[in-house]
Simulated assay, not measured.
Amino acid sequence: MKIRSTVAAACLAAAGIYAGPAFAIDYPARKPGLWEMQTSDGAGSKAKPEAIQQCIDAATDKMLREMGQGMGKDMCAKQDMRMEGGKMVIDSVCKIGQTTATSQAVMTGDFSTGYRLESKSTYSPPLMGRAGATTVVEARWVGPCKADQKPGDMVMNGMKMNVHDMIGGRGKK
């Protein structure tokens, strides 16, 4: 069960920055290669940030954007995205089970060398005992993928997996 939840978390993490339906403003494509993403609970959190490394190419990045957009269509009644002075701002209202999550996410960066996403959410009724949450994702391009990696490979919590294999896609060799 732990492995299954880790795999699900990895898929969500991989597609999570793209959740939402298709917009007039398209998400920028990330530079192909190895990306490292640190996820934390926001400023002042005592929890250790989680790190994910992900090897992507243009096709994998596109697949993850489309997967996230599909998740948003299924879960969200509202997804508004706009540009404000070089920042991408996304306001959403989504259902998670019986809970309504109202969120605002702000993305900055160039998607070639790095980006930052900060999302603040409130939950009604509370989700797993929490009335709200802040999530921060700091991502940076590390360089080319390692010699033993193929597009779609992710390393999370010391476990290596491939998003194409997890979702039954075309695993690249």
Rank of each mutant, 00 (worst) to 15 (best):
A14I: 11
G70E: 10
C76I: 04
D148Q: 06
P49N: 10
D165N: 06
D74L: 14
G152M: 09
I25C: 03
G68L: 12
A19H: 09
Q149P: 15
F111E: 02
G169A: 10
Q69V: 09
R65D: 00
R140E: 09
K173T: 14
Q69F: 10
R82H: 08
G168N: 05
K173G: 15
T99N: 11
V136E: 08
M154P: 02
V155Q: 10
V89N: 01
K78V: 05
P28H: 00
R82T: 11
Q149F: 07
M166P: 15
N157K: 11
A133N: 07
D41H: 08
D153R: 02
G97V: 02
G129H: 05
K120V: 12
R4I: 15
M1T: 08
S103Y: 02
R140M: 07
I56Y: 07
A22Q: 11
I17A: 11
T6R: 15
Y123C: 01
F23D: 11
R30K: 12
K31Q: 10
A47Q: 15
C11D: 09
G20Q: 02
V155Y: 09
A19G: 06
A9V: 05
G158P: 03
W35T: 03
I17S: 08
G70F: 01
S92Y: 02
V93L: 07
D41R: 14
I96W: 00
C145E: 03
G42E: 06
C11A: 15
I56A: 06
C11L: 15
G86H: 12
K78S: 01
G168I: 06
G132M: 09
P126H: 12
Y123P: 00
G171L: 10
R130K: 10
A59V: 03
K95V: 01
G68F: 06
Q53P: 01
V93K: 10
E36D: 01
A9R: 08
S92A: 12
A29Q: 02
A105W: 05
T99V: 07
I96K: 12
A58I: 01
S5L: 13
M161E: 10
T135W: 07
A8W: 10
A24E: 13
S112I: 06
E84A: 08
D91Y: 02
S124P: 01
A131G: 06
M37V: 06
G171Q: 13
A147P: 12
D165L: 12
T135M: 14
K62F: 04
Q98N: 09
S40L: 00
P144W: 11
K73T: 14
G86M: 05
S112A: 14
P151E: 14
G143D: 01
W141M: 05
Q79G: 08
